[in-house]
C-alpha cells in the first residue's frame, strides 16, 4: 500500500507543479486496483487456498492418510481460528510450533510423506507449486476476520517470545543489521518502500502480520511468514536461515504478539 503511494508520489514529484493532483489521481487508480485485487475472485492467492483444501483431505504418503487428523492446536482436524492462535505450544512434541512446523510434523508422522520433497518445494516457483504455501493459504484463510491471539501462557511459549524478541534486536553478519535496523522507527522507508514499525505493539504490526500469508505480485507466488523472514535475512546479508527452525518460529511469535488484536485478512495481495 505504501509502495504504491510512494510510487505515486515519486511520479508526481518528477512531474513538477501539477504533482499534487496527479498524485491524488494515481492514488485513486491504485486504490481501485487494490480493491479489485482483494476480491477473492481476482486474487491469485485463492488458487493456493483451493489447492490447499484438496491437499488437506487427500490421502497421501506411506501411510495413505489425509491431514484431517492433524491437530493445529484447536483439536484434530479443527481449522477455524487455529492460525490466529499460532505459534503455540504442543504437548506431543514438547515444542512451540508455527503453522508450517506443525504441518510438517503431521505430514511426517501421520502421512509419512517425503519430507525432502516438501522442503525442496517449500517456496513455489514457476512450474513448481508448494504444498506448504497451498496448505498455509487454506488454513490461514480459515482465520480470516479473526484476531491474532496466541496464548503465550505455557513457559515454553514465554521463552519462545523472549527469544524472538532477542532475535529481533540481534545485530549480526556482513552488514551489522538486525530486524530493528529497519523496523524500530515510525514512518521510515528504504528507497520508496515504507517500513512497518514492529518493535512495539500497534497498528503497523497489526496491518503487517494481519496480511500474511499474501500473494506477492512481484513474485507471482503466495508467500508465508517463513518466506518473509527468509527474505529479510537474505537482504540483511545473513546466511540462509534453516527452514522451519525454532528461531523463525520464535520471531514469528514475537511479531504476532506485536500484532495482537489485529484482524487477519488472508491471503492478502501485496507488491
Amino acid at each position: 500500500m505504501r509502495v504504491f503511494m510512494a510510487l505515486a508520489m515519486s511520479v508526481a514529484l518528477g512531474a513538477g507543479s501539477a504533482h499534487a493532483q496527479q498524485a491524488i489521481d494515481t492514488e485513486k487508480e491504485l486504490e481501485k486496483y487494490r480493491q479489485m485485487m482483494s476480491d477473492p475472485m481476482s486474487n491469485p492467492g485463492f488458487l493456493n487456498v483451493d489447492r490447499g483444501e484438496v491437499l488437506w483431505s487427500q490421502k497421501r504418503g506411506s501411510k495413505n492418510a489425509s491431514l484431517e487428523g492433524c491437530d493445529l492446536g484447536e483439536g484434530p482436524g479443527k481449522l477455524e481460528g487455529a492460525f490466529a492462535k499460532l505459534p503455540r505450544f504442543f504437548a506431543d512434541t514438547g515444542k512451540v510450533m508455527d503453522l508450517e512446523q506443525r504441518l510438517a510434523h503431521c505430514m511426517e508422522t501421520q502421512q509419512g510423506v517425503d519430507m525432502a520433497d516438501i522442503t525442496r518445494r517449500r517456496f513455489g516457483a514457476p512450474g513448481r507449486t508448494s504444498d506448504m504455501e497451498d496448505l498455509v493459504a487454506f488454513i490461514a484463510n480459515k482465520s480470516s476476520g479473526m484476531k491474532y491471539s496466541a496464548p503465550l501462557a505455557h513457559p515454553k511459549e514465554k521463552e519462545a517470545f523472549a527469544i524472538g524478541q532477542e532475535l529481533f534486536f540481534r545485530r549480526s553478519d556482513f552488514m551489522d543489521f538486525s530486524c530493528a535496523t529497519c523496523h524500530a522507527e515510525e514512518g521510515k522507508r528504504i528507497r520508496l518502500q515504507g517500513l512497518p514499525q514492529l518493535n512495539k505493539a500497534g497498528k503497523d504490526a497489526q496491518v503487517t502480520m494481519g496480511s500474511w500469508p499474501t500473494y506477492r505480485v512481484s513474485q507471482s507466488q503466495t508467500r508465508t511468514m517463513q518466506h518473509r523472514l527468509w527474505d529479510c535475512y537474505r537482504q540483511m546479508r545473513s546466511p540462509e536461515p534453516v527452514y522451519l527452525s525454532d528461531g523463525l518460529t520464535a520471531l514469528t511469535l514475537f511479531l504476532v504478539k506485536q500484532a495482537e488484536g489485529g484482524e487477519i485478512q488472508v491471503p492478502s495481495i501485496k507488491r
Binding site: P155, K158, P241
Partner: peptide, 26 residues
C-alpha cells in the same frame, strides 16, 4: 520495550538463545 511487553516475559537463558541461533544457522 516498555512495561506493556516486559510483563510476564522471562529473561532469556543465554545458552538457550545460542542453541536457537546455532540451529538457525548451523
Amino acid at each position: 520495550l516498555g512495561p506493556a511487553l516486559a510483563q510476564d516475559v522471562p529473561k532469556v537463558d543465554a545458552k538457550r538463545l545460542e542453541e536457537v541461533t546455532k540451529a538457525m544457522w548451523p
